[in-house]
Design a protein around this nucleic acid. Structure first.
Length: 299
DNA sequence: ATGAACGTTATA
DNA sequence: TATAACGTTCAT
Protein backbone atom coordinates (compact mmCIF):
# COMPACT_ATOMS: atom_id res chain seq x y z
CA UNK A 1 0.00 0.00 0.00
CA UNK A 2 1.44 3.24 -0.97
CA UNK A 3 0.71 4.88 2.33
CA UNK A 4 2.04 2.06 4.36
CA UNK A 5 5.18 2.80 6.13
CA UNK A 6 8.24 0.85 6.57
CA UNK A 7 11.34 2.71 7.40
CA UNK A 8 13.23 -0.31 8.38
CA UNK A 9 14.00 -1.24 4.86
CA UNK A 10 14.12 -4.72 3.44
CA UNK A 11 13.86 -7.43 5.96
CA UNK A 12 15.98 -10.43 6.33
CA UNK A 13 14.15 -13.72 6.30
CA UNK A 14 14.86 -14.57 9.86
CA UNK A 15 13.45 -11.30 11.01
CA UNK A 16 9.98 -12.18 9.95
CA UNK A 17 9.65 -14.94 12.44
CA UNK A 18 7.93 -13.83 15.52
CA UNK A 19 4.62 -12.81 14.09
CA UNK A 20 2.58 -14.31 11.36
CA UNK A 21 0.72 -11.11 10.77
CA UNK A 22 3.34 -8.50 11.26
CA UNK A 23 6.45 -8.47 9.20
CA UNK A 24 9.04 -7.96 11.82
CA UNK A 25 11.99 -5.89 11.03
CA UNK A 26 14.27 -4.21 13.48
CA UNK A 27 14.27 -0.49 13.38
CA UNK A 28 17.43 1.30 12.68
CA UNK A 29 19.27 1.62 15.94
CA UNK A 30 19.20 5.36 15.82
CA UNK A 31 15.47 5.20 16.30
CA UNK A 32 16.11 4.22 19.80
CA UNK A 33 18.02 7.23 20.81
CA UNK A 34 16.46 10.07 18.95
CA UNK A 35 13.73 12.11 20.52
CA UNK A 36 12.25 15.03 18.73
CA UNK A 37 14.71 17.78 19.48
CA UNK A 38 12.60 20.46 17.89
CA UNK A 39 9.32 22.01 18.78
CA UNK A 40 6.85 23.55 16.40
CA UNK A 41 8.20 27.00 16.99
CA UNK A 42 11.57 25.76 15.98
CA UNK A 43 10.31 24.44 12.69
CA UNK A 44 8.40 27.60 12.02
CA UNK A 45 10.90 30.19 13.05
CA UNK A 46 14.20 28.62 12.27
CA UNK A 47 15.10 29.13 8.65
CA UNK A 48 18.11 26.94 8.90
CA UNK A 49 18.68 24.21 6.40
CA UNK A 50 18.25 21.69 9.10
CA UNK A 51 14.60 22.45 9.44
CA UNK A 52 13.86 23.73 6.00
CA UNK A 53 10.93 21.51 5.31
CA UNK A 54 10.37 22.99 1.92
CA UNK A 55 13.90 22.23 1.11
CA UNK A 56 13.34 18.71 2.15
CA UNK A 57 10.30 18.41 0.00
CA UNK A 58 12.06 19.82 -2.96
CA UNK A 59 15.64 19.15 -2.27
CA UNK A 60 18.34 20.88 -4.13
CA UNK A 61 20.38 18.80 -6.54
CA UNK A 62 23.18 18.88 -4.05
CA UNK A 63 20.88 17.57 -1.39
CA UNK A 64 19.60 14.91 -3.69
CA UNK A 65 23.09 13.81 -4.44
CA UNK A 66 23.92 13.76 -0.82
CA UNK A 67 20.84 11.79 -0.04
CA UNK A 68 21.35 9.30 -2.78
CA UNK A 69 24.17 6.97 -2.07
CA UNK A 70 25.20 4.30 -4.47
CA UNK A 71 22.70 1.71 -3.45
CA UNK A 72 19.00 2.06 -3.63
CA UNK A 73 18.25 1.81 0.04
CA UNK A 74 16.65 4.94 1.37
CA UNK A 75 19.17 6.71 3.45
CA UNK A 76 19.16 10.09 4.96
CA UNK A 77 21.46 12.76 3.76
CA UNK A 78 24.53 12.86 5.92
CA UNK A 79 24.39 16.57 6.41
CA UNK A 80 20.98 16.53 7.97
CA UNK A 81 20.50 16.05 11.64
CA UNK A 82 18.53 13.23 13.06
CA UNK A 83 15.31 14.69 11.87
CA UNK A 84 14.50 11.64 9.87
CA UNK A 85 14.16 9.39 12.77
CA UNK A 86 12.49 9.37 16.10
CA UNK A 87 10.74 6.91 18.34
CA UNK A 88 7.30 8.08 17.43
CA UNK A 89 8.07 8.82 13.85
CA UNK A 90 10.24 11.12 11.90
CA UNK A 91 11.16 14.53 13.02
CA UNK A 92 10.63 15.70 9.54
CA UNK A 93 7.32 14.00 9.32
CA UNK A 94 6.35 15.49 12.59
CA UNK A 95 7.42 18.94 11.62
CA UNK A 96 5.68 18.70 8.33
CA UNK A 97 2.50 17.52 9.91
CA UNK A 98 2.58 20.32 12.40
CA UNK A 99 3.22 22.82 9.70
CA UNK A 100 0.47 21.44 7.61
CA UNK A 101 -1.88 21.58 10.52
CA UNK A 102 -0.90 25.15 11.05
CA UNK A 103 -1.40 25.87 7.39
CA UNK A 104 2.16 27.04 7.09
CA UNK A 105 3.38 24.48 4.70
CA UNK A 106 2.56 25.15 1.10
CA UNK A 107 3.25 22.49 -1.39
CA UNK A 108 5.17 23.59 -4.38
CA UNK A 109 3.97 22.43 -7.78
CA UNK A 110 7.03 20.27 -8.15
CA UNK A 111 6.50 18.72 -4.80
CA UNK A 112 2.90 18.13 -5.70
CA UNK A 113 3.93 16.52 -8.90
CA UNK A 114 6.42 14.36 -7.20
CA UNK A 115 3.99 13.38 -4.56
CA UNK A 116 1.34 12.56 -7.08
CA UNK A 117 3.80 10.22 -8.66
CA UNK A 118 3.85 8.35 -5.46
CA UNK A 119 0.10 8.54 -5.43
CA UNK A 120 -0.30 6.61 -8.62
CA UNK A 121 -1.36 3.89 -6.36
CA UNK A 122 -4.41 5.75 -5.29
CA UNK A 123 -6.53 2.68 -5.48
CA UNK A 124 -4.97 0.84 -2.59
CA UNK A 125 -4.74 4.06 -0.72
CA UNK A 126 -8.42 4.58 -1.25
CA UNK A 127 -9.07 1.13 -0.05
CA UNK A 128 -7.05 1.71 3.05
CA UNK A 129 -8.84 4.92 3.75
CA UNK A 130 -12.14 3.19 3.31
CA UNK A 131 -11.06 0.39 5.53
CA UNK A 132 -9.85 2.75 8.13
CA UNK A 133 -13.19 4.44 8.07
CA UNK A 134 -15.17 1.30 8.43
CA UNK A 135 -12.75 0.21 11.05
CA UNK A 136 -12.30 -2.90 9.11
CA UNK A 137 -8.89 -3.13 7.62
CA UNK A 138 -7.36 -2.26 10.87
CA UNK A 139 -4.86 -4.84 9.85
CA UNK A 140 -2.91 -5.46 12.90
CA UNK A 141 0.28 -6.31 11.38
CA UNK A 142 0.74 -3.34 9.43
CA UNK A 143 -2.04 -1.02 8.68
CA UNK A 144 -3.63 -3.57 6.56
CA UNK A 145 -1.26 -6.41 6.24
CA UNK A 146 0.91 -5.83 3.28
CA UNK A 147 0.02 -8.07 0.44
CA UNK A 148 2.43 -8.79 -2.33
CA UNK A 149 1.00 -6.13 -4.61
CA UNK A 150 1.29 -3.60 -1.88
CA UNK A 151 4.88 -4.38 -1.33
CA UNK A 152 5.44 -3.94 -4.99
CA UNK A 153 3.92 -0.54 -4.86
CA UNK A 154 5.96 0.34 -1.88
CA UNK A 155 9.12 -0.36 -3.67
CA UNK A 156 8.04 1.19 -6.90
CA UNK A 157 7.38 4.40 -5.10
CA UNK A 158 10.89 4.53 -3.86
CA UNK A 159 12.59 5.87 -6.88
CA UNK A 160 14.28 8.52 -4.88
CA UNK A 161 15.26 8.94 -1.32
CA UNK A 162 12.49 11.38 -0.82
CA UNK A 163 9.53 9.67 -2.25
CA UNK A 164 9.39 6.95 0.30
CA UNK A 165 9.27 9.58 2.94
CA UNK A 166 7.13 12.15 1.26
CA UNK A 167 4.84 9.78 -0.46
CA UNK A 168 4.54 7.15 2.13
CA UNK A 169 5.46 8.38 5.52
CA UNK A 170 2.83 11.01 5.73
CA UNK A 171 0.16 12.21 3.39
CA UNK A 172 2.04 15.05 1.85
CA UNK A 173 0.38 14.71 -1.46
CA UNK A 174 -2.82 16.71 -1.79
CA UNK A 175 -4.17 13.63 -3.43
CA UNK A 176 -3.57 11.75 -0.27
CA UNK A 177 -5.31 14.26 1.90
CA UNK A 178 -8.80 13.37 0.88
CA UNK A 179 -7.78 9.75 0.91
CA UNK A 180 -6.73 10.04 4.45
CA UNK A 181 -9.97 11.79 5.22
CA UNK A 182 -8.54 15.17 5.97
CA UNK A 183 -9.64 18.52 4.82
CA UNK A 184 -7.93 21.83 5.05
CA UNK A 185 -9.28 25.20 4.33
CA UNK A 186 -9.97 28.55 5.85
CA UNK A 187 -7.67 27.76 8.68
CA UNK A 188 -9.68 24.75 9.61
CA UNK A 189 -8.12 21.39 9.66
CA UNK A 190 -10.30 18.53 10.47
CA UNK A 191 -10.88 14.94 9.81
CA UNK A 192 -13.74 14.44 7.48
CA UNK A 193 -14.66 11.40 9.45
CA UNK A 194 -14.59 13.34 12.68
CA UNK A 195 -16.69 15.99 11.15
CA UNK A 196 -19.46 13.52 10.72
CA UNK A 197 -21.91 13.38 13.48
CA UNK A 198 -22.38 10.86 16.18
CA UNK A 199 -20.95 7.47 15.82
CA UNK A 200 -18.71 8.31 12.96
CA UNK A 201 -16.88 10.77 15.09
CA UNK A 202 -16.31 8.17 17.68
CA UNK A 203 -15.26 5.70 15.08
CA UNK A 204 -12.69 8.19 13.99
CA UNK A 205 -11.66 8.46 17.58
CA UNK A 206 -10.87 4.81 17.65
CA UNK A 207 -14.09 3.29 18.76
CA UNK A 208 -15.49 0.70 16.48
CA UNK A 209 -19.22 0.86 15.98
CA UNK A 210 -19.45 -2.50 17.59
CA UNK A 211 -17.47 -1.39 20.57
CA UNK A 212 -19.91 1.41 21.08
CA UNK A 213 -22.60 -1.06 21.83
CA UNK A 214 -25.10 0.52 24.09
CA UNK A 215 -25.91 -2.41 26.25
CA UNK A 216 -22.90 -4.17 27.63
CA UNK A 217 -21.17 -1.13 29.02
CA UNK A 218 -18.15 -3.24 29.75
CA UNK A 219 -14.60 -2.36 28.82
CA UNK A 220 -14.40 -1.71 25.15
CA UNK A 221 -11.22 -1.51 23.22
CA UNK A 222 -10.48 1.39 21.01
CA UNK A 223 -8.91 0.80 17.68
CA UNK A 224 -5.83 2.32 16.28
CA UNK A 225 -6.50 5.23 14.01
CA UNK A 226 -4.46 3.79 11.19
CA UNK A 227 -3.35 7.20 10.10
CA UNK A 228 -0.77 8.38 12.55
CA UNK A 229 2.87 7.74 11.96
CA UNK A 230 3.14 4.87 14.43
CA UNK A 231 0.08 3.25 12.95
CA UNK A 232 1.68 3.41 9.57
CA UNK A 233 4.64 1.50 10.67
CA UNK A 234 4.53 -1.97 9.32
CA UNK A 235 7.14 -3.52 11.43
CA UNK A 236 7.89 -4.22 15.02
CA UNK A 237 11.27 -3.10 16.17
CA UNK A 238 11.82 -6.27 18.16
CA UNK A 239 14.02 -4.24 20.40
CA UNK A 240 11.76 -2.18 22.56
CA UNK A 241 10.49 -3.51 25.82
CA UNK A 242 7.10 -4.21 24.38
CA UNK A 243 8.54 -6.28 21.60
CA UNK A 244 10.98 -8.09 23.80
CA UNK A 245 8.33 -8.72 26.38
CA UNK A 246 5.47 -9.42 24.07
CA UNK A 247 4.39 -12.63 25.68
CA UNK A 248 3.93 -11.08 29.07
CA UNK A 249 3.40 -7.52 28.17
CA UNK A 250 0.70 -7.99 25.59
CA UNK A 251 1.64 -4.65 24.17
CA UNK A 252 2.24 -3.51 20.65
CA UNK A 253 5.69 -2.31 19.72
CA UNK A 254 6.32 1.07 21.26
CA UNK A 255 7.07 2.55 17.91
CA UNK A 256 3.78 1.32 16.56
CA UNK A 257 1.58 2.45 19.37
CA UNK A 258 -1.17 4.59 17.94
CA UNK A 259 -0.91 8.23 18.92
CA UNK A 260 -4.64 8.36 19.33
CA UNK A 261 -4.66 5.47 21.73
CA UNK A 262 -1.99 7.13 23.80
CA UNK A 263 -4.50 9.78 24.66
CA UNK A 264 -6.97 9.19 27.35
CA UNK A 265 -10.37 8.47 25.84
CA UNK A 266 -12.03 11.18 27.84
CA UNK A 267 -9.02 13.41 27.88
CA UNK A 268 -8.75 17.03 26.83
CA UNK A 269 -10.02 17.72 23.38
CA UNK A 270 -11.83 14.47 23.11
CA UNK A 271 -15.26 15.95 22.74
CA UNK A 272 -14.20 18.75 20.52
CA UNK A 273 -12.31 16.35 18.38
CA UNK A 274 -15.42 14.34 17.97
CA UNK A 275 -17.58 17.25 17.05
CA UNK A 276 -15.01 18.96 14.91
CA UNK A 277 -11.55 20.27 14.88
CA UNK A 278 -10.63 23.89 14.70
CA UNK A 279 -7.06 24.77 14.13
CA UNK A 280 -7.30 28.14 15.72
CA UNK A 281 -9.08 26.88 18.73
CA UNK A 282 -7.71 25.60 21.94
CA UNK A 283 -7.87 22.10 20.66
CA UNK A 284 -4.91 22.57 18.47
CA UNK A 285 -2.99 24.11 21.28
CA UNK A 286 -4.02 21.30 23.50
CA UNK A 287 -2.98 18.82 20.92
CA UNK A 288 0.42 20.37 20.69
CA UNK A 289 0.76 20.42 24.42
CA UNK A 290 -0.26 16.84 24.50
CA UNK A 291 2.19 15.86 21.85
CA UNK A 292 4.82 17.64 23.81
CA UNK A 293 3.89 15.78 26.89
CA UNK A 294 4.05 12.61 24.90
CA UNK A 295 7.64 13.46 24.31
CA UNK A 296 7.06 13.65 20.62
CA UNK A 297 7.74 17.30 20.35
CA UNK A 298 10.27 18.04 22.96
CA UNK A 299 12.40 20.96 22.09
C1' DA B 1 5.62 9.50 35.84
C1' DT B 2 6.94 5.32 33.86
C1' DG B 3 7.08 0.60 32.79
C1' DA B 4 5.93 -4.36 33.66
C1' DA B 5 2.45 -7.69 34.27
C1' DC B 6 -1.98 -9.33 33.76
C1' DG B 7 -6.96 -9.48 32.48
C1' DT B 8 -9.69 -8.87 28.87
C1' DT B 9 -11.46 -7.97 24.29
C1' DA B 10 -11.24 -8.35 19.28
C1' DT B 11 -10.14 -10.82 15.29
C1' DA B 12 -8.67 -14.53 12.16
C1' DT C 1 -8.70 -21.67 19.63
C1' DA C 2 -4.70 -18.81 18.96
C1' DT C 3 -2.91 -14.46 18.62
C1' DA C 4 -2.67 -9.42 18.92
C1' DA C 5 -3.09 -5.76 21.61
C1' DC C 6 -6.02 -2.33 24.70
C1' DG C 7 -7.00 -1.18 29.46
C1' DT C 8 -5.96 -1.49 34.18
C1' DT C 9 -3.27 -2.25 38.15
C1' DC C 10 0.78 -2.18 40.65
C1' DA C 11 5.67 -1.55 41.64
C1' DT C 12 9.39 1.54 41.11
Amino acid sequence: MSTAVDIAGPSSPDQAHSSAKIPNEPLRPSLKRSNHPYGLSHYISTPSQAVDVKGLIQPSPAQQRAAQPAHAKPRRAPSWPDMWESPSGLHLAHAAELLMRAGLLALTPAATEQASLGAQSSQPAKREAAEAKTGKGEGEGGGGGSGPEEEEEDSSGCGTDFQPFLGAWFPFSPALFPLAGFQMGGGHWRSAAMGAEGIEGLVAEGYSPGSLGTSSGGKRKRKRCGECVPCRRQTNCEQCSSCRNRKRGHQICKYRKCEELKRKPGGPGFESRVSGFDLRGSDFTLGLAQERSNGALDG
